[in-house]
Design a protein around this nucleic acid. Sequence first.
DNA 1: TGTTGAATTGTTATAACGTATCATTTAGGA
DNA 2: TCCTAAATGATACGTTATAACAATTCAACA
Lengths: 168, 168
Amino acid sequence: MPDAPLEPLGFERHDHKHCVSDAMATAEARCADAGLRFTPVRRRVLEILLEEHQAMGAYDVLSRLQAEGLGAQPPAAYRALDFLVANGLAHRVERLNAFVACAHPGEDHIPAFLICRDCNRVAETVTLPSRDVLIEAARACDFEIDKVLVEAEGRCGPCRDAPAGSGA
Amino acid sequence: MPDAPLEPLGFERHDHKHCVSDAMATAEARCADAGLRFTPVRRRVLEILLEEHQAMGAYDVLSRLQAEGLGAQPPAAYRALDFLVANGLAHRVERLNAFVACAHPGEDHIPAFLICRDCNRVAETVTLPSRDVLIEAARACDFEIDKVLVEAEGRCGPCRDAPAGSGA
DNA sequence: TGTTGAATTGTTATAACGTATCATTTAGGA
DNA sequence: TCCTAAATGATACGTTATAACAATTCAACA
């Protein structure tokens, strides 16, 4: 879905190579701790998400895998992505049917996404908040919350400045 | 996606027929005020959502329409649903690729959904809250929020009590 | 009242996303 | 080494969504 790998929204310029290797090391450690098998496909998919630094559709990930001979069919991508999501290394952005590497792996958090309606770029932030209100509502109807997701739709700075679509 | 029209989660017993006609009247009035064309298909789709009192996939809605001769192809359903969502009469539940009639039409609100992972039933509540934190984060990365969505996943009371699946 | 332009609907076709199923391989413990 | 559980390979299919264009309807207005 995302169509242009420009400046990722919400992330200041940084040493990206370094941040990728950092994140990979963290993931490696987490998997070792938890006794999870961080296999080549899983590892590579996380790396792809980190490198892209942006939400990617499962089929985008798949075509990368195919190019590298790591799996040729949809289930290969979905399985790896499901593993990453289940273990807190990535998130699924429902609004886009897409996936992003988690920006806060290891920290227990409620992710919140800012999704630009024009360029589809996504920034991850957190929502400690308001948990209370939701929890109160949940209690009132005898509902047990496992997981919360917050997605905000709007426009990023570049897209507001530019004539529609030109930023994407 | 939802598979059983049992007691809708999060709604106490009530005079459902009455609540449907109430909601339809409100919708009617809103459309008149806003100069929107509340056509037969749109009207009927909202009615279906209200009657079902539960999240429905676009294709579920479509098959109802087909049965009534109101439109035979996917675009008919999607167009009506898009109209309802765009005008605050329904919401899209991203997690389920489904739609629900809005429980608070007319009131400007951030909807929050409680989605049971077992039976897929959905309750709508609101999140006035924490808007601040998100807004702060958005400002920090020059992002202009149009719309926020909160979806919580968990289990409803009946599903917790029952052996998995038996409630659905 | 007839015309016109915009919105809506009809229709076809296809794109995009996701999963069930079963065979095969691999890793790691008994 | 053997066994088992996890992971992967592969096929086929199901579900969700939209692009594109034709036909129709509606309402405003000359």
